[in-house]
Amino acid sequence: MSIDRRFFFKLAGLTALAAEVPGAGATPENSGKKGAGEAPKTTRWGIAIDLPLCHEHPDCRVCMEACNKGHNVPSIPDSRHEVKWIWKEKFSHAFPGQTGRYLSSELAEKPVMMLCNHCDAPACVGVCPTQATWKREDGVVMMDWHRCIGCRYCIAACPYGSRSFNWVDPRGYLKEQNADFPTRSTGVVEKCNLCEERLAENKPPLCVETCPYGAIHYGDLSKPDSPLRKLLDERFAIRRKPGLGTEPQVYYLV
């Protein structure tokens, strides 16, 4: 059953690929660990967040609310039990070690949008003892909430705090339920899925689509002429904890 489900996900991903890029099929070369220099040969999704533009609107919560609503992410008041897919963190926490005595203290306090980095070499995937989390050919790090046994090894392994565990029944904390997306049960891990359900329909992720200022970009990193790659060529961007070898694919334009 689980294998079927996973196969279905892969198929859905491939179908989306085929629809968007005629003639491009997934190859095994595009999976597993790779160096920073090699570009993948098939679609590889990535995200770029325009920090200065985002900082102009410090009270904006549009992307978070759209994501939470679209994915039935509960709003749990107890911060110890919170479930987070996309959220705000102080710059000094998002980029620890990047602030200092003589660096702008204003910047250190500015919020940064945090989400799963959909790493090229995700630490969470290797440690999972049931293969309930895996990296798709197009780079999306997926979760099977029906296979996860809730051991939380992936949470210990993720250097970005991107994974949440359902400490309590999340269904009790949903104001309204989106019938088009599953809810989760107690005792499983979840995280941002890069809106794979929307990518499959050729739609952008919710955070990208709903940002009123166009501060969140998405695109295919494998195409040198894709708008996302052009953006990364033109502007200086940083990534969270790049030294750990996880190759995060969420870029922060500064």
Binding site: R147, C148, I149, G150, S185, V188
Partner: peptide, 10 residues
């Protein structure tokens, strides 16, 4: 374990 009934998944 959060879902002990699934532990045989290992």
């Amino acid at each position: 374990l959060g879902q002990p009934q699934r532990m045989l998944n290992m």
